[in-house]
C-alpha cells in the first residue's frame, strides 16, 4: 500500500483476508485468531466494538506504552476493525491510572476526526478490569450471559496490542512475526516493553535486557495473576506471551495453606459472582456426587483470574483447584 489512508479502499472481506494471512491473533494472552472474531461478527448484529485499553494484569504495561507511543496508529487500527465489522461505534476502555495514554489517544481522535464514532471511557483501576466480560459490562452495561460469548450481547472486543498489529498488517503488510512484551519484575536489570520476535528464547531476552540481578524464584510467562511459570529459559516467546516477569523470593508466597476460615474475602472479590471458597472446599473432598454441586455453584463461569487465591488469608489455591476440576472429563 502506498499511503496510510489507502486501506479505506479495501472491502471488509479484503481486510479480513489480510488479517488472516498475517496470522494475527488476540494479543491479550488468549490468542483467539482475529479473523475468526471478525468473520463471525460480521452481520451478526454486532453494534459496538470494545477496545480493551486496560492491561490484563498487574506488571504489564505494553498496551499503555502503545497508546502513548502510537496513538494515531491505534486509531487507524480501530477504524480498520470497524470497517471489517461493518459498524461505526467503538468504545475504548482505559483505566484511570493511564491518564497520559488517554490524553494522547483523545488528541489523536480529535486530530484524525474519523467519520466513525470512537470514544474513550475512563474506568476505575482494578483487577480484573481488563477481563473480557468485566470490561464489556463496565463500558456498555451489558452482561455476557453465563457460558456465552460477547457476540451474544452484540459486542466484539479487541485489545490495544491486537488493534496495533491489525493496522500494521493492513497498512504496511507486516505479518505478526513480532510482538510487544513487557519484561519486568524486580530481578531484571533493564525492565521495559520490548518488541520481541516470536520464537526468541527467554534466555536471549534476559541477555538483551541486561541480565538478571539474582536468581529468580519464579519466571512467569504472562502476568503474575494468571500467567504460568516457565520451567526452562530455552522456552520461546509466543504470540500469547504478554509479559515475562522475574519474581524474587520475597515477592512470592511459598508455604503451606490452611483450611478455609470462612472469612468471605474470596466471595467479596470474585468478579464472576461465585463462591470460590465453596468451590475450593468441594473440590478438595471431590467425590462423584459433587460434580452436580459444582455445576450449580457456577464453576463454568469462573474466569480463572486468581483474585480469590490472591486475597485468601488461609493461602488456599482455589483458582488452581477450579482449573483442575474444569479439566476433569466429568465436568
Amino acid at each position: 500500500m502506498k499511503r496510510e489512508e489507502d486501506w479505506d479502499k479495501l472491502t471488509c472481506d479484503d481486510i479480513i483476508k489480510i488479517i488472516r494471512n498475517a496470522g494475527i491473533v488476540g494479543l491479550g494472552g488468549v490468542s483467539i485468531p482475529a479473523h475468526v472474531k471478525l468473520s463471525r461478527g460480521k452481520g451478526s448484529g454486532i453494534d459496538t466494538l470494545i477496545i480493551n485499553g486496560c492491561e490484563s494484569e498487574p506488571y504489564l504495561t505494553a498496551d499503555d506504552m502503545l497508546m502513548k507511543t502510537y496513538p494515531f496508529e491505534v486509531v487507524t487500527g480501530i477504524r480498520i476493525i470497524l470497517k471489517a465489522l461493518g459498524i461505526s461505534r467503538a468504545l475504548i476502555g482505559i483505566e484511570d491510572n493511564k491518564m497520559a495514554a488517554a490524553k494522547k489517544l483523545t488528541d489523536a481522535i480529535t486530530e484524525t476526526a474519523p467519520p466513525e464514532h470512537i470514544s474513550i471511557v475512563m474506568l476505575k483501576t482494578k483487577y480484573p478490569q481488563g477481563a473480557e466480560k468485566n470490561i464489556i459490562y463496565s463500558l456498555t452495561g451489558r452482561k455476557v450471559p453465563s457460558k456465552g460469548a460477547p457476540a451474544d450481547i452484540h459486542a466484539a472486543i479487541f485489545n490495544i496490542g491486537t488493534v496495533h498489529a491489525v493496522r500494521e498488517a493492513v497498512v504496511t503488510g507486516k505479518p505478526l512475526f513480532e510482538r510487544y512484551v513487557t519484561v519486568s519484575g524486580s530481578l531484571i536489570r533493564n525492565p521495559g516493553n520490548y518488541k520481541i520476535r516470536i520464537g526468541t528464547r527467554i534466555s536471549s531476552v534476559i541477555e538483551e535486557c541486561g541480565g538478571l540481578t539474582g536468581k529468580p524464584a519464579r519466571i512467569i510467562s504472562g502476568g503474575p495473576m494468571s500467567g504460568y511459570e516457565i520451567h526452562d529459559t530455552d522456552m520461546p516467546v509466543t504470540k500469547e506471551t504478554t509479559g515475562i516477569i522475574f519474581l524474587s523470593r520475597d515477592q512470592v508466597y511459598e508455604g503451606p495453606f490452611h483450611p478455609c476460615i470462612r472469612c468471605g474475602s474470596c466471595v467479596n472479590v470474585c468478579p464472576a459472582g461465585l463462591m470460590p471458597c465453596e468451590l475450593g472446599n468441594g473440590i478438595e473432598k471431590m467425590n462423584s456426587g459433587s460434580f452436580d454441586y459444582m455445576e450449580r455453584l457456577g464453576i463454568h463461569d469462573c474466569i480463572l483470574c486468581g483474585a480469590c487465591s490472591y486475597v485468601c488469608p488461609a493461602k488456599r489455591p482455589m483458582s488452581q483447584y477450579i482449573k483442575l476440576a474444569l479439566e476433569l472429563p466429568a465436568l
Binding site: P224, I245, L247, Q251, I261, Y310, P313, K315, K323
Partner: peptide, 18 residues
C-alpha cells in the same frame, strides 16, 4: 520440574494478621 501455580503473588493477608 516442580512448577508453582498462579496467582504468583499474594495480597499478604494471613490468619495471624486477622
Amino acid at each position: 520440574l516442580f512448577l508453582t501455580v498462579p496467582p504468583h503473588i499474594h495480597s499478604g493477608g494471613s490468619i495471624p494478621r486477622i
